[in-house]
Nucleic acid binder design. Structure first.
Length: 579
RNA sequence: GCAUCGAUGGUCUAGUGGUAUGACUUAGGCCUUCCAAGCCUAUAGCCCGGGUUCAAUUCCCGGUCGAUGCACCA
């Protein structure tokens, strides 16, 4: 036996590597920190997790998925604040070679406003400051920007700057106008995206927890700012209870309190129904992929921890036996920050026209110039007069206006004054955005770590991945007890029949049956079918449950349907044993 | 990025200034009527670059990757 380490992380990663879940990328060239490959089983498991996510957000919520490029032009990230805010001003201590945040150094030296100073100014200002590491006086240093975004140029010989997106969210924001049309100009609506994002982390660590290229699943839900407490399906999760760790509790060092979503909103613990709804949905989703509820909590961001745009933010944290509580999902109320920013940067409005129930009537006085006379009389000034008259306050004698410093009197005969009742049918509003953002890779790690188990079976250590059947890459294994007397061909036929119903079944006839069971246990295959000599007599097979190692006999014709039901969680193995 | 430690078949490891130990795995065969049994055979390894040396997997320097601490994680 391979001696098992007492470090879960090492055991999980060793198994993941050996069995084809997770590999270091381009290993033959020595790998690169912060990048990983999903091997055959890992890619399958990840896909199943993503499909469960789609089931929740696309099918159940009705938020369609879009797919945007991973590279976008600079304007997008100027608007989002990433060009400016995603970079740190750094300098290197000439004595100890430590890299330091220049603004932290300035703060230590009581220099204010470092964040708005130019790099040269900061460099000059911090000359006499002490290094935060070795405490020597810095002297001459160069201050430079380190941006966490990967940059590139677009096109040959082009100076046009592009960035690899640091989050998928911006794609949904910049497509806002198209999305609004797609959803026929009505709020609320949502768009989601599952895709790669990139952050050039200074020091990626902890395997799959902090990557430079990672998969995000993000939903951007656009909602009327006054409707945030009226989620149309709130009732689904109103009574959903879970432990919440509020920022108040954190400051008092108290533990989380279990509470229903309805109560959380009523007591103002969660900002609004929308945030509460997705907090609950996230809990539901994470439990579905196999996260144990007792290893799951929702932590509210502290006020100073929140991103500049968010009014409320909750992190779903999953407990890792190695890393402690790991932020896995963030649910934020981003308000109208992003849409406003893109509207300003791009010059395209990002608003929704909301019709009033009844049009609002307002009386107003309108001046209608008689242009056929005005034009002839004032010639080149006519257009300016036309514009000025609109806002003028006319008397019975006429109107006095000013064009480029020249006072002009327009007699009343040259325009008509109409008092009108104008109907205003609605208004343009900028929607608010509720954003649940999932780190798929962290979810994959959490699922693997939680599933990893070693138990003792017949005096031997059995390594078993107790994956939920819903995310297990291989769904059922099919074995002939012996490779002879036609058992193998029967097993092979069953395998193919399962394939036809969309079940990923793996046929294996090598070595002793026990070895084959263990092999499947290790990759988390939840069920195994064995064809034995009774099969030839009565057309039944043995169905084995991975977790209990118990077996039941079922008829071959029913097996695809039974396996399907077991994998989808529609029937339990225990219920089969009872019949 | 700095500091400390580490890197030997797919995995876990022994060891060495003269190309490497053992186990498990995997593949083929024999055997075997439900949980890693046994037997035979086979495949497969010293992270990369430079230096010292007749000779480097081993010693030295640099790099890469990994672990840990610091910093970083809008």
């Amino acid at each position: 036996m391979i001696p098992a380490s007492n470090d879960v992380f090492e055991n999980v990663m060793e198994l993941a590597k050996r069995r084809g879940f997770i590999w270091p990328t381009s290993e033959c060239y020595g790998g690169v920190a912060g990048f990983i490959d999903y091997g055959p089983l890992g890619a399958m498991m990840k896909r199943r997790i993503e499909d469960i996510w789609r089931d929740f957000y696309v099918i159940r919520e009705g938020y369609y998925e879009i797919e945007c490029p991973t590279i976008a032009q600079e304007d997008v990230f100027i608007a989002s604040g990433h060009v400016k805010g995603f970079s740190d001003k750094m300098c290197q201590c000439p004595h100890c070679k430590e890299y330091l945040r220049a603004d932290h150094v300035a703060e230590g030296g009581n220099i204010r406003n470092a964040s708005v100073m130019t790099n040269e100014d900061i460099a000059a200002a911090i000359k006499s400051c002490k290094c935060l590491s070795c405490e020597a006086e810095l002297g001459d240093v160069e201050v430079f920007n380190f941006n966490l975004m990967f940059s590139t140029t677009i096109g040959p010989g082009s100076q046009r700057v592009g960035y690899l997106r640091p989050e998928t969210a911006q794609g949904m924001f910049v497509d806002f106008a198209r999305l609004l049309r797609f959803y026929r100009d009505k709020l609320p609506f949502g768009a989601v995206q599952i895709g790669k994002s990139y952050r050039n982390e200074i020091s990626p660590r902890q395997g799959m927890i902090r990557l430079r290229e990672f998969t995000q699943a993000e939903a951007e839900i656009f909602v009327h700012p006054d409707e945030k407490n009226r989620h149309p399906s709130f009732r689904r999760y109103a009574d959903y209870r879970m432990p919440l760790l509020t920022h108040v509790q954190q400051q008092k060092c108290e533990g989380p309190v279990e509470i229903s979503m309805q109560e959380a909103v009523a007591r103002g613990i969660i900002a609004n129904e929308y945030v509460a709804y997705y907090v609950a949905l996230t809990h539901d989703l994470l439990v579905t992929i196999g996260i144990k509820p007792e290893r799951l909590r929702f932590r509210q961001h502290l006020v100073d921890e929140r991103a500049h745009y968010a009014t409320d933010c909750w992190d779903a944290e999953v407990f890792s036996r190695r890393f402690g509580w790991v932020e896995t999902v963030g649910i934020a109320d981003r308000t109208d920050y992003d849409l406003n920013a893109h509207a300003t940067q791009s010059g395209s409005p990002m608003t929704v026209f909301i019709q009033y129930d009844k049009p609002k009537k307002t009386e107003c006085r309108r001046i209608i110039p008689n242009m056929s006379v005005l034009g002839k009389q004032y010639r080149a000034k006519a257009n300016a007069i036309f514009a000025a008259l609109k806002t003028a306050t006319p008397t019975q004698k006429g109107a006095d206006i000013e064009i480029e410093g020249e006072k002009i009197h327009i007699p009343a005969s040259l325009f008509e004054v109409r008092d009108e009742v104008i109907e205003i049918r609605g208004e343009d509003i900028v929607p608010h955005v509720i954003e649940p953002s999932y780190g798929i890779d962290r979810m994959c790690y959490a699922v693997l770590e939680q599933a990893y188990d070693e138990d003792i079976a017949d005096g031997e250590t059995r390594t078993v991945l107790r994956l939920s059947p819903k995310v297990a890459p291989v769904q059922v294994a099919v074995f002939p007890l012996m490779i002879r007397d036609g058992l193998d061909s029967i097993a092979y036929e069953i395998t193919q029949k399962l394939h036809k119903t969309g079940i990923l079944a793996e046929y294996d006839d090598s070595g002793a049956i026990g070895r084959r069971y263990r092999r499947q246990d290790e990759i988390g295959t939840p069920f195994a079918i064995t064809v034995d000599y009774d099969t030839k007599e009565d057309n039944t097979i043995t169905l084995r449950d991975r977790d209990t190692m118990k077996q039941v006999r079922i008829a071959i014709p029913e097996s695809p349907e039974t396996i399907r039901g077991l994998v989808d969680g529609k029937i339990s193995f225990a219920s089969l044993a009872n019949t």
